[in-house]
Measured scan of single mutants.
Amino acid sequence: QVNIAPGSLDKALNQYAAHSGFTLSVDASLTRGKQSNGLHGDYDVESGLQQLLDGSGLQVKPLGNNSWTLEP
C-alpha cells in the first residue's frame, strides 16, 4: 500500500522509488517545479508512476532490470 502526499513531483517520485524498490533515472530539469497529486493505494510500478506523472506532460519508459526513466 502506497501513501504519498501531494506536492513536489521530485519528492513524490523519490518516495515511490524507495517504497517500491525500483531505480528511477531522471534528468532533474524534467521534473523541476512540477507538482504531483500524490498516490494512495496498491499499484504496480508502471501504473503508480503514470499516476504520479498525471498532468506533468512526462511519460514513463522502462529501461529493464527494474529501472525506469522519464521523457517528455
Rank of each mutant, 00 (worst) to 15 (best):
V2F: 11
V2Q: 04
N3R: 08
N3Q: 10
N3W: 13
I4V: 06
A5H: 08
A5K: 10
L9K: 01
L9W: 00
D10N: 06
D10A: 10
K11G: 11
K11T: 13
A12R: 03
A12T: 08
A12M: 04
L13N: 02
N14P: 00
Q15M: 11
Q15P: 00
Y16T: 01
A17C: 07
A17L: 06
A18N: 09
A18K: 12
H19N: 09
H19I: 15
H19L: 15
H19A: 13
S20T: 11
S20P: 01
G21Q: 07
G21W: 06
G21P: 00
F22Q: 04
F22L: 09
F22A: 07
F22C: 10
T23H: 12
T23V: 11
S25K: 13
S25R: 12
S25D: 12
V26Q: 04
D27R: 06
D27V: 07
D27Y: 05
S29M: 10
L30C: 12
L30I: 08
R32D: 14
R32E: 15
K34Y: 08
K34L: 12
K34E: 09
Q35C: 15
S36Y: 02
S36G: 03
N37H: 10
G38A: 02
G38Y: 04
G38L: 03
L39K: 03
L39Q: 01
L39N: 01
H40S: 12
G41M: 01
D42G: 07
D42F: 15
D42S: 13
Y43V: 06
D44M: 06
D44Q: 06
V45L: 07
G48S: 04
L49M: 07
L49G: 00
Q50D: 06
Q50M: 14
L52C: 02
L53K: 00
L53P: 01
L53V: 13
D54F: 14
G55C: 07
S56I: 06
S56D: 00
G57S: 04
L58A: 01
Q59T: 12
Q59A: 11
K61N: 05
N65G: 11
N65D: 11
N66V: 00
W68E: 02
W68Q: 01
W68A: 01
T69E: 08
T69D: 05
T69I: 13
L70T: 02
L70W: 00
E71W: 07
